[in-house]
């Protein structure tokens, strides 16, 4: 993956960051808690988190001093919707064209 990809793609391209997202999907976690299972330093975790935060996939709780991170489900859903729609743009359009030609109505 090159840096030409958008923040969202760049964030998801890294297996450690995907694993961190999966960990966060199970619940909030501090930097310390995130570092433990991956065998990497806390600064390295913070660096990955910055990328995820910039992509809108992770946010943090301001209530606690340890600033536990949590997954941003809205950001993830928007990204996923957009990826699906981009990927399916022409196949979907051709399906809809077929429906339009067959009965002349607006397709779903």
């Amino acid at each position: 993956m090159s840096e030409s990809l958008s923040p969202i793609f760049a964030a998801l391209a890294d297996p450690t960051r995907r694993a961190m997202l999966e960990r966060l999907a199970a619940g909030e976690a501090t930097v310390k808690e995130l570092a433990a299972p991956f065998g990497i330093s806390q600064p390295a975790v913070s660096k990955h988190l910055k990328v995820l935060e910039a992509a809108g996939l992770v946010s943090w709780s301001k209530t606690a001093q340890t600033r536990p991170r949590r997954i941003n489900a809205v950001g993830l859903k928007h990204a996923r919707d957009w990826i699906d729609q981009f990927r399916d743009f022409w196949p979907d359009s051709f399906d809809r064209l077929d429906a339009y030609l067959n009965d002349g109505r607006a397709p779903r």
Binding site: L5, F9, L12, A13, E22, L76, R80, I83, F86
Partner: peptide, 29 residues
Amino acid sequence: PEEEQAFVENLSSMQGGLAGSFDQLAAYL
């Protein structure tokens, strides 16, 4: 060249790994 590369990378990644990893993550969520 950078824009062409972005287009090509997205075409291939859409059909392969990236969409797949999103599916896994969504299933997990």
